[in-house]
Nucleic acid binder design. Structure first.
Length: 506
RNA sequence: CGGGGUGUAGCGCAGCCUGGUAGCGCGCUUCGUUCGGGACGAAGAGGUCCUGGGUUCAAUUCCCAGCACCCCGACCA
């Protein structure tokens, strides 16, 4: 009937991508902005998603030998000062606690009192305080390795916050490990990057490119930063996780040293690695469509939502008890090692409105159950990765449900991968490169560009020129071995050892 | 820190120029008709008009100051 299908989210992606993103966050009931600038309230649907991310990653961390611990929120200012590059990198975005008491002034207003002798910094990341702690723990090579992760919040006073993508306070995990040798620390750095890649691709259904950062983009204080980068639907890159090889920099500044097997006192080698609630933003922008969010089944707070359709009050009990039974039956099935998560939505709402609320939230499967279905012992299913709805025998659905969820998971990944490949180009000519990254209408930039695989001579000047001219940065030097052809730098024409990924970034 | 803008009901806004102490849409409550693609009608509830000062018989409206937030830039491992 309708000429163009009405979409649940307005504007659509192609009309105004940043606004679409904000609307999805809101309509999917994931989070909202708070009275505190740059800080968000994560709502139950969004937080459940984070809990699932945490649960699955935690299993992977434990499986690779790590344990969890917890370190303080506050860092003495002097600690942060010990690593010079680290200071430069974070000093501009630190929240500082200078007082520890409030007193009423003459007008009855509360004012800070009780000035601290040494200000405390709210952790922007915990290398320094953890390093100081580790220095006491490490005496002998027998104390190594230390393989610890912490789940925490951190604060970075960013100039321009974006919900989930760059908030002032965010939730994350940070792994901090100490090793006896350089090789072992490097292996750890690589291993955790692989964990992130596996998680991103198999759980978030978000294809990522692994590689290393250029000097310019490196973590302050790191010798090398490895990263996973994903392409969003506006073709910008999102750094989704980083794993840092810290060399002996932090070990030296915090004096993490031990007696080695030869009896000499030497500094240890450390790593750190983290992912944050930014991953949620990544999933929204990877999978979301014009009807809202689409949650990858493996991380979905609810896999299946049952929507009872009651047309006549006298049928209410029949329908609801059938739905209850179906729910129990489905919860007996396992998907990805855990029981299928089922929500029976019996809120007293208009059926259409109720159904759409779950579409916008991105629940993988919706089941509409009314007298018609009960009489034919079937279910009426809507899949979030497909349009339309269809009926199928109840028993068949129960038998197939894990397979259907797996299929949705696979479809999301394949679709995202195809999108990325479609918009990744080898470019060897600077003017073509510029065209690729220049919007047709600068007033209202449309979705354009993508990942450009181009040669780079490794000189930071060339990298900076591209950034200054086009706001394009080197996202990573890909680690895949099929990328070792030599060529000429896209900027200066000098010899280049390999192609790197250029893109606009979040 | 520069440049611009906005503060009025839970949310989004109008009213202000041309002062007379408030209105619209959504949401919310109740009732009825609806309900498998987002409903409709009726009746309701809900406001220190950002704060302080000034002008005035009278300020949401005009003037001054302050605060907060938003957008653009700078900045963003």
């Amino acid at each position: 009937m309708a000429k163009e299908r009405k979409s649940a989210i307005s504007p659509k992606r192609h009309e105004d991508y940043p606004e679409w993103y904000q609307q999805v966050v809101k309509n999917a009931d994931l989070a909202e902005s708070s009275p505190v600038r740059g800080c968000m309230v994560i709502k139950p649907w969004g937080y459940a998603l984070w809990e699932n991310i945490r649960t699955e990653l935690d299993i992977m961390f434990k499986a690779t030998g790590h344990v969890n611990a917890y370190f303080p929120l506050f860092i003495p200012l002097s600690y942060l000062q010990k690593e010079a590059d680290h200071v430069d990198g974070f000093a501009k975005e630190c929240a500082v606690v200078t007082h520890h008491r409030l007193e009423a002034d003459a007008d009855g207003k509360l004012v800070p009192a009780g000035e601290l002798e040494e200000p405390l910094v709210v952790r922007p990341t915990s290398e320094t305080i953890i390093g100081e702690t580790y220095s006491k723990w490490v005496q002998s090579y027998r104390d190594l390795p230390i393989l610890i992760n912490q789940w925490a919040n951190v604060v970075r006073w960013e100039m321009r916050p974006r919900i989930f993508l760059r908030t002032t306070e965010f939730l994350w995990q940070e792994g901090h490990t100490v090793h006896e040798t350089k090789d072992e620390a490097w292996d750890e750095t690589v291993k955790m990057l692989e964990v992130y890649k596996t998680f991103a691709e198999e759980y978030m259904a978000m294809p990522v490119i692994t590689g290393e950062k250029t000097t310019e983009e490196r973590f302050p204080g790191a010798e090398n930063t490895l990263c996973i980068e994903a392409m969003m639907q506006d073709r910008k890159a999102l750094q989704a996780g980083t794993s840092h090889f810290l060399g002996q920099n932090f070990a030296k500044s915090a004096d993490i040293a031990f007696q080695n097997r030869e009896g000499q006192r030497v500094h240890a080698w450390t790593t750190s690695w983290g992912v944050s609630t930014r991953l949620i933003g990544g999933m929204i922008m990877t999978h979301g469509d014009d009807d809202g969010f689409i949650v990858p089944p493996r991380l979905a707070p609810k896999h299946i939502v049952i929507l009872p359709i009651i047309r006549d009050d006298k049928d209410a009990e029949t329908v609801l008890s059938y739905c209850e039974k179906l729910k129990i039956e489905l919860e007996d099935v396992n998907f990805n090692r855990v029981p299928v998560r089922v929500e029976l939505d019996n809120r007293d709402l208009n059926a259409g409105e109720k159904g759409w609320s779950w579409v916008k939230k991105g629940a993988p499967i919706r089941l509409e159950i009314g007298m018609r279905d009960i009489e034919s012992d079937s279910v009426f299913m809507g899949r979030r990765d497909q349009q339309g709805k269809s009926g199928m025998p109840r028993a068949q659905f129960v038998a197939d449900v894990a397979g259907i969820l797996g299929e949705i998971q696979d479809n999301l990944f394949k679709k995202a991968l195809a999108y990325r490949e479609e918009h990744t180009k080898n470019i060897d000519d600077l003017s073509k490169f510029a065209d690729f990254f220049t919007p047709e209408n600068p007033e209202k930039p449309e979705t354009h560009g993508g990942f450009a695989l181009s040669h780079w001579c490794t000189n930071p000047n060339c990298e900076n020129k591209i950034n200054a001219d086009l706001s394009v940065t080197i996202r990573c030097i890909p680690s895949s071995s099929d990328n070792e052809e030599q060529g000429k730098c896209i900027v200066c024409g000098e010899k280049s050892p390999q192609r790197v990924i250029f893109a606009k970034a979040y």
